[in-house]
Write a protein that binds this DNA or RNA. Sequence first.
DNA 1: AAGTGATATGTGTGATCACACTTAGAGTCA
DNA 2: TGACTCTAAGTGTGATCACACATATCACTT
Lengths: 237, 237
Amino acid sequence: MANRMEWPAQSGSLETVERATLQEQIYRQLRDRIMSGFFQPGQALSTRSVAEAVGVSVMPVRDALRRLEVENALVVGHNRALEIPRLDIATLSEISATRIALEGLAVERAQPAFVAADIGALKDHCETMSGSIDAGDIDGYLGANWAFHSHIYRRASDGILLSFIESLWLRMGPYFRLTAGDREHLDNAMIIHHDIVGALEKGDAASARSGIVADIEAATGDLTDWLAKDTGSAAAS
Amino acid sequence: MANRMEWPAQSGSLETVERATLQEQIYRQLRDRIMSGFFQPGQALSTRSVAEAVGVSVMPVRDALRRLEVENALVVGHNRALEIPRLDIATLSEISATRIALEGLAVERAQPAFVAADIGALKDHCETMSGSIDAGDIDGYLGANWAFHSHIYRRASDGILLSFIESLWLRMGPYFRLTAGDREHLDNAMIIHHDIVGALEKGDAASARSGIVADIEAATGDLTDWLAKDTGSAAAS
DNA sequence: AAGTGATATGTGTGATCACACTTAGAGTCA
DNA sequence: TGACTCTAAGTGTGATCACACATATCACTT
């Protein structure tokens, strides 16, 4: 009974996306929820519980969960059920270093392909982020933040590199929300974002890369502090 | 009939690995064959054809193929069937840049963890490679080459970073064999490998990284030439 | 002879069932 | 009271079936 999933409201949105396989719809829904921090680290997602929650058979759920497992967004847990992976400092360090390597490469590759419309899109995303911060809308901020970054990376890759970066964000998704409430962190992030836009506007790939690296290191630093503080106090199973 | 798979000899080895799910055994077998260049680029691998070839139902094959699809080792092809992806110059360039970023990072992270036993293992792999070259054993060379590299990367990561690197090798696997027949390429590669071992033995992470980068760039250069020559002559569908 | 339709084949998708395995817990016995 | 066994629930795994869809082939019509 402890594994009973809470699957509020949004469940109906599964029918909205027509013309896609059930497996694809479920995958995308779970993926969005993982990246936006809907699920708690350690929460179990078994095929039957998810299948019952969305009202389909286990087959498409099985495919969706397996896909997420391969992408490192889920790991086998307690009694063979898949669950949201917990993050320790060592793993966070590895993920951060990998993010710097991949996202740094991506922004360098993206810069030559950037046109005025891309700069405009990035500025729009920055506007959305600022507005969400003022409104206290963490979901809005996180969504715009990913839209900002993915717009850049999508100019560098149409395949493998982008899928790797998405996998890393998916892995950190459940934890992004935890540090996104801090105003100081958010203000600093916005400064960095504007620096990145400015660098890309000037065609300065090296500075753009430095900006991305600074953004990743800031997020990693905040999360490292949070993890260190958390492991000291929380003993919840 | 054109999609009829040829599945010679080794098929029996599926039963050798006990204590693993069928899906896992099939995945591993397909994975090894892809990385060693057993399958031709463009060759179709449908669930039913593979299931019939190995003598199981479609379920475990379906899982194994999906996993490989998520890892970019297979792509949806002609009539929705999965097939070995073809490589074009632009994709090769992206893969190469990503390999440099990730494998360069991995060797830098691995260096501090290296001990004498690791150096010895690398030298053993070099011996195997040299012997395979002299014997004209391409499979032996490719296997030892991957063993050499993966031994290094395994000291840097137990998870995400390693899985990304494996995904990239899996993506290039079908093409490795094509340039591995050139003696000049092989001799050059062996020099680089010895340089890498020497750098790691001295604890020189920067030189080790340079060696890895040189190895990747050499392989990429040879394969780029091969692809350019191939697209000029081959018009086979 | 050329276009057009029906048909056969191959494909992934999804549902349902049976099974083996693991784990937690209640029950029983010493 | 403690240790043990047995049972029940929960889990992924694999087989089998039916279905929708895409493609190619062949016969039929014009």
